[in-house]
Design a binder for these strands. Structure first.
Length: 441
RNA sequence: GCGGACGUGGUGAAGUGGUUAACACAACGGGUUGUGGUCCCGUCAUUCGAGGGUUCGAUCCCCUUCGUCCGCCCCA
């Protein structure tokens, strides 16, 4: 009991891993047909990759795992998100010079944030995300949303909603920011401490405030849409038209500003409406960023991306009763009837494995009955019985569980016999209560 | 960082200031010595998250600590 995982982290145990494999397989399929390629960047970066000048977000200011090793002056940080690392890599390797732009990338991996753990919120969690860098077109915004939306739809999730908004370009945002500051100027003293901080650092995020949400000053606050210039407005309208064209339902939420400060134009959030999700209901979210590539020393190029919380996705699937991945089963189990033949049993298991059958045997010298229990529990399709009689005769006994068909064959013929048994039509009439097969509950 | 609830075997859980900590599931062994799933019998917590304190005596009361859950905050 003295050793345990650090707070807010968890082991993903073997009996849960099928969910992760199922999701990862589907992710690769989707990214393949969308022609997005995987990128892998380091799990830690120089701190200044994440901590950039004007960033006022909690994520970079309060929640980063930042460390400096002894005998070193280099400050490193465990990545709290992926976009910064991807953009850094894009610029560092001068990928903006590649022929095919935009570059379409995806990633899957762990992120670290020092937050208070809660349902759907851990200190190490996994994100699947996409980044499209090197071109700016509203239909690219639509494409990335479509990728995520079709992905969660393919899983069977139904209680999902797309919330979308625009922050406009820099000029629109500057104008809006000034208007907000003016609006809140005389009341900021009565507002919550967080809002006071936001007022100075990033007035847009005052709109995110839950404390003062119902106050009159909040309700009469100027709207972003009234400060959008023509170009920004047109951009947003094209995004919405693209979503309409693909039949993706959405809801415009003009309070949506997102927590990361690098966003421009399109921002969106896809949330689960299922009550079992708890307070952390955002499954994937992202937006466009116009300034990041230049910030990292590249040309003026735009990007768009989103990130999806894998743990939250699993929660959402569980909340909607969606099973991920197949339950484990075994093709063949070798039943060892006497410890004296265990070496021969191992040779037979090896032969089955070499032939491609998922196979196993007992290594605990357990009773015959106990070994058969394992057969039931693991959903074994065929059993090979091996006792002293078989070894003497150089035979094996093969029993197909589904219909209890049992044959004895020479060991040389074992694999071809198994091939036959597995290929043969095994669905047969099995009336309830009238047969001896095992029915799974 | 703030507020609240909780922590008993592999799992789900009952329980009480007093001698041996229910019950169920799972696991293992046996009845059935080479043919499983049902049934019956047996075994399985010197210990109640950890550390300290009060007490003749603590799983139960108090403190500390670690962790989980819920909400705030934040975000995927």
């Amino acid at each position: 009991m003295s050793y345990q995982v650090p707070r807010g982290t968890q082991d993903i145990l073997p009996d849960q891993i099928h969910k992760w494999h199922a999701l990862e397989d589907l992710i690769r399929q989707f990214c393949y047909v969308y022609d997005y390629k995987e990128i892998r960047t380091p799990i830690f970066e120089h701190t200044n990759v994440f901590k950039r000048g004007n960033d006022a977000s909690d994520m970079v200011n309060k929640e980063m795992y930042t460390f400096t090793l002894e005998n070193s002056s280099t400050s490193l940080t465990l990545r709290p998100e992926m976009t910064a690392g991807v953009v850094r890599s894009y610029v560092e390797h001068k990928l903006y010079g590649e022929a095919d732009q935009p570059l379409k990338m995806y990633y899957v991996g762990p992120m670290c944030r020092h937050e208070r753990p809660q349902k759907g919120r851990s200190r190490i969690f996994h994100q699947f995300g996409v980044e499209v860098i090197g071109a700016k077109h509203p239909l690219l915004d639509v494409e990335t949303i479509a990728l995520g939306w079709s992905f969660v739809s393919a899983l069977g999730l139904k209680d999902m909603k797309v919330l979308i908004n625009t922050l406009g370009d820099d000029a629109s945002r500057d104008a809006y920011r000034a208007a907000l500051k003016q609006h809140f100027a005389k009341d900021i003293d009565h507002m919550c401490a967080d809002c006071k901080r936001r007022y100075e650092q990033n007035p847009l995020r005052i709109l995110d405030c839950k404390v003062d949400k119902e106050s009159a000053i909040m309700k009469t606050a100027p709207k972003m849409k009234d400060y959008l210039n023509e170009e920004s407005k047109a951009y947003f309208e094209q995004v919405l038209a693209g979503l309409d064209a693909l039949g993706i339902p959405y809801e415009i939420d003009d309070q949506l500003v997102r927590g990361l400060d690098y966003y421009t134009h399109t921002v969106f959030e896809v949330v689960s409406l299922n009550k079992e999700m708890g307070a952390q209901s955002t499954v994937f979210a992202g937006g466009r960023y116009d300034g990041m590539v230049k910030y990292f020393g590249g040309p003026q190029m735009s990007g768009i991306g989103w990130a999806l919380g894998m743990e939250r996705l699993i929660l959402a699937c569980e909340a909607e009763g969606i099973a991920l991945g197949e339950t484990e089963s075994l093709d063949i189990y070798v039943l060892c009837l006497s410890p004296s033949v265990s070496v021969q049993a191992l040779q037979i298991v090896s032969a089955c494995r070499a032939a491609g059958y998922k196979s196993d045997m007992d290594y605990q010298e357990r009773s015959f009955k106990a070994q058969f229990k394992t057969v039931d529990r693991k959903g074994v399709k065929a059993v090979i019985l091996l006792g002293e009689d078989e070894v003497k005769a150089n035979m094996v006994t093969i029993k197909r569980i589904a219909d209890q068909k049992q044959v004895q064959v020479k060991q040389e013929e074992m694999i071809s016999c198994l091939d036959g048994l597995f290929q043969e039509e095994t669905t047969y009439d099995c009336k309830e209560g009238n047969c001896t097969c095992h029915h799974e509950e």
